[in-house]
Nucleic acid binder design. Structure first.
Lengths: 110, 110
DNA sequence: GCAGTTTATAGATAGACGTCTATAAAGAAG
DNA sequence: CTTCTTTATAGACGTCTATCTATAAACTGC
């Protein structure tokens, strides 16, 4: 029995019970899914803890105990949602945090 | 080639490059995974938008376009990480937001 | 061009997850 | 106690995803 059909029940939904638009919810969840992974959280923490606020893949593989392709895969996920910036300098590729994007996540929960 | 082994390279990892403890990362990702789902984001938004800041399952199924077991499943996920409080009153079970837990997520990104 | 590095991509595989149907559990009301 | 409601659980199924190995791409330096 749905609420509207109920004559005497107490299952009273607030009139303003209007779902967050699905498209918007999917967009937000896409961003959150990128962060909701232990390995990627570790990667972000490692980048942030690095002196120059940037790191290359080769420095992350060993402490994470993962192969290079796996680390590249995770960084790509972070990059796709704009959480890390990519900059090639010679042989290495340096990744840094996009703090503006990071802050946007905080705003979602305030 | 790892950084330590490099004599002349520039792949200089900050000395303090120390990964976030895996156990802590898994704990945080568990909380974030619960929120990183479009349906659960909609559920949270609907609860928050409700007059009394609470909602029962039966009011959520129709606007979400999902079956009752599926909605129960999602709410359980949210409940498991402490994001929603559960209170049975007669036939219905009322779910409300745990705003303290919500705020803890914000703190992760500030 | 060739050899040696770092990073990215492709393909495969195992496990996690969102959804459904079917059914049980818990409470209200006659 | 029986019936009707709401909610929870169990099991199945298809999809997504984290990881690996193998290989390609990009750059440096000889």
């Amino acid at each position: 029995m749905t609420n509207q059909a109920m004559a005497l029940g107490q299952c009273a939904p607030a009139p303003g019970t209007e779902p967050l638009a699905r498209s918007k919810a999917s967009e937000i969840s896409g961003l959150l899914k990128a962060v909701a992974d232990p390995t990627r959280l570790q990667i972000l923490a490692m980048i942030a803890a690095t002196e120059g606020q940037e790191a290359c893949v080769c420095d992350l593989t060993e402490p994470l105990g993962l192969t290079q392709p796996t680390v590249s895969h995770h960084i790509k996920k972070l990059s796709e949602v704009g959480l890390v910036n990519r900059e090639r300098r010679g042989t290495w590729v340096w990744y840094s945090l996009n703090r503006e994007r990071w802050g946007q996540i905080a705003e979602l929960f305030t």
